[in-house]
Design a protein around this nucleic acid. Structure first.
Lengths: 197, 197
DNA sequence: CAGAAATACAAGTAAAAGCTCGTATTTGTC
DNA sequence: GACAAATACGAGCTTTTACTTGTATTTCTG
């Protein structure tokens, strides 16, 4: 019943990337719920009809964006993982992780906006969950590399909690004065170090 | 220029409360962004026109709800505060605080839904901020009562962070199995105790 | 009781937003 | 070069939704 798959040409793939770029930029400004498909099409320099040639609905754009994010971040996490060993002091690890998160947050605000897939009942929740789980798994892998005898279950729980803390503090960090922001970052690091000790 | 204030009669105040009740129930189900004013009016058993007699727009309903919440919770916090003294062990304090938060979250899901009005660019942010600040102040007051020599600035920061932690973990707690939920609650308490020590 | 203000209603408006349609052009394959 | 598939377009359809309007009823105040 469903239309059969389309054989994308190089032009089409490029076009899809442009759409995702545009969506990313719109989401960074107004968030996914307030993002309109016409707006995305306009910013990508195409008509709504063209956009719907590549994504059957608004949600598919969201899915595409999330997939692209997880793919893109894969190499970053691999590098992070490689740099971890049991000898690395916890403070350094936490410091690097938090600093990198802050940097990434200002570089890719749309990513974070999606990560906060709001409270109730929208389709964002699933997307948010996917991003969250991906990160938590990566953090857990880092923890296990530092403490090889840590059970996997335990590492995953700890990683989940650590990510939750970063997620929780991040919005405050990026919406306040530089001084207070630094204060919050320091406090977040302190919190994480105490927790992970 | 603006229409002058309306002298509400008892009937009207009751009607406003009914509207807020209906809004609360709708928000608990679909969240504020997907809440429609017609839906609220219907659930409150009145016409849209009647609703707009009391709230000039959708956002005023949100504001009304937030105000009512902060008012209602005032007595709760007063009681909490009265029960705190320097002798209370930290574990007990944290345990009570977390347990009460979990209980309140299932009792008033709409409250939490609003508390997460983060992400980007919607009017929810302001409402969320108001709720957050209110709680953080109350927690800070509790901390200062336990440690009278704690500077106010410091208490506020610590309260903010503690609240952030609870907020971060809460969505996970209420969307999983009872066993994992208990696990998460325990971990959250552990986290808080370590942080606040 | 009389007038004014508040409350009540439901049909309806205007704008927004997701998405379609008919058609025209470009690209890949034989 | 020829045919099909993919790409491109933008006007416009459909639905939804916040909000209005005109009018009728109830409550308060003198």
């Amino acid at each position: 019943m469903a239309e059969r798959t389309v054989r994308r040409q190089a032009r089409g793939l490029k076009r899809m990337a442009e759409i995702l770029d545009a969506a990313e930029s719109v989401i960074a400004e107004v968030g996914y719920p307030d993002m309109t498909t016409n707006q995305v099409a306009a910013r990508a320099g195409m008509s709504p009809g063209s956009l719907y040639q590549f994504f059957r609905n608004k949600e598919e754009i969201l899915d595409g964006l999330v997939s692209r994010y997880t793919d893109e971040r894969q190499e970053f996490w691999a590098a992070q993982l490689a740099a971890v060993s049991p000898e690395v002091p916890l403070e350094a690890l936490v410091g690097q992780f938090v600093d990198e998160s802050v940097r990434f947050k200002s570089a890719s605000p749309a990513y974070w906006s999606l990560l906060y897939g709001t409270a109730t009942g929208d389709q964002l929740v699933a997307a948010s969950q996917r991003l969250h789980d991906d990160i938590a798994r990566q953090v857990a892998a880092m923890l296990r590399r530092r403490s090889p005898d840590l059970p996997e279950e335990r590492a995953l729980l700890t990683g989940t909690m650590a990510l939750a803390m970063v997620k929780a503090v991040m919005p405050m960090i990026t919406t306040t004065t530089p001084e207070r922001s630094a204060e919050l970052v320091a406090e977040l690091k302190l919190m994480l170090v105490r927790y992970l000790s």
